[in-house]
Nucleic acid binder design. Structure first.
Lengths: 215, 215
DNA sequence: AATTTTGCCTAACGGTGTTACAAAAAGTAA
DNA sequence: TTACTTTTTGTAACACCGTTAGGCAAAATT
């Protein structure tokens, strides 16, 4: 059946153009101008056509969420693969997380900034689980097997991620600016210094715990 | 002129009722039902009356932002005053920050979650500067005067705050849940453990740096 | 060629923030 | 008390938003 094929293909094209157009609008005009009506206008279809491809607005956002976590996972995997030393992997992943956030502000804002993800949302995005897996497995590899009396990988994973997310979101807002702000480009790369500082104390914290005596 | 006084008093009453009613609605129904029209309905005035007290919706939010930072500052100051040991002050303030966030979710969501604060917003809220001052002064007190070769208080302040904010925002969303999630209340207080973990490595990081050799 | 199915659009519903303008109330002066 | 002025308030509109019901026309099927 060639006709059915062509129809499926065309339907898929419209779906893709919805996503593409919507994303282009978000990147150029920000999330505040993400609107079903504007998308419909841009793709030169009427509004209900969009609803024949997506249940509602959130369904489109969910799609972008998926894509975002997929991209983030790829970035982390790539950073991790660059070395074999677990501590270096952690450091590289921290940097990759940072870079992803600032090279894809719109994704990051959607994934972690805008609507606080609900449980359902999390369950709909398997890539979130993959994200935590990548980090946790590296953390486990960091402590030599056997002597880790009070080491909880999930706890350390949350610490790691919390530090990164806090750092990113503060620096993405105006809250990260130095209050005195003297001439201008004096501490232009302070955020990266903070990142390094935070990663150092995190890694040192784990290594210190590793040398702990079993009780 | 008693009449002018009474008018001012009445005007102030309406203004207060706008804020009170709006806040009550936010607390009971969440931020998504924060609407000028609903407020007008609740205070039994027409919509334009609200615009005679506030320039627009954002002006009302700004007011809540002010109040939120004021409350946060009070909580931090109280925690700080409980001890004289700087490291303990930092620890107490971290805990106070955490408690504030979860005892005032709506405030926290407004202050750090919803709209990413712009530079203008930050400048309109002097309490934000006071927030950073409180923390930075404690950090400065932590390192013995004289031997602190590479100690940047603002950098440490950002680290401190980043960790706290990341921790809070992750645990306020569904992203902080353990993926396996066995029976239910097994690791109910894991977040507090993570908080303690993060604070420990932060304080240890500063103390380690204090023992650094000047170069 | 007649009929069913499909795809699409118009137009509406109920909601939002914001504002122009008119009516009503309150204060002031004669 | 009456006439005038100022202030306060409400009505109704504008321009958006997400979402959906219903009908029309083209396409596919019989």
């Amino acid at each position: 059946m060639g006709i059915t094929d062509r129809k499926l293909r065309q339907k898929e094209e419209v779906r893709a153009s919805i996503l593409d157009t919507a994303w282009e609008m978000v990147v150029t005009e920000g999330w505040q101008s993400f609107s079903i009506r504007k998308i419909a206008d841009a793709i030169e279809y009427s509004v209900p056509v969009i609803y024949s491809h997506f249940e509602n607005k959130d369904a489109i956002l969910l799609e972008f969420n998926r894509k975002g976590f997929q991209l983030l996972n790829e970035a982390l995997a790539k950073a991790k693969a660059a070395t074999d030393i677990p501590a270096e992997q952690i450091r590289a992943m921290g940097r990759a997380y940072w870079d992803f956030a600032f090279q894809n502000k719109e994704y990051y804002q959607l994934m972690f900034g805008l609507g606080i993800p609900t449980c359902e949302t999390v369950n709909k995005i398997p890539a979130i689980a993959s994200f935590s897996d990548t980090i946790i497995s590296t953390l486990v590899a960091m402590v030599a097997p056997g002597r880790k009396p009070s080491f909880d990988p999930f706890l350390k994973y949350q610490s790691f991620w919390s530090m990164l997310h806090g750092l990113v979101s503060i620096n993405m807002s105006a809250l990260g600016n130095r209050p005195d702000a003297p001439s201008g480009h004096e501490h232009a790369n302070l955020p990266l210094q903070v990142l390094g500082d935070v990663m150092c104390s995190f890694i040192r914290g784990i290594e210190a715990q590793e040398n702990e005596q079993p009780n």
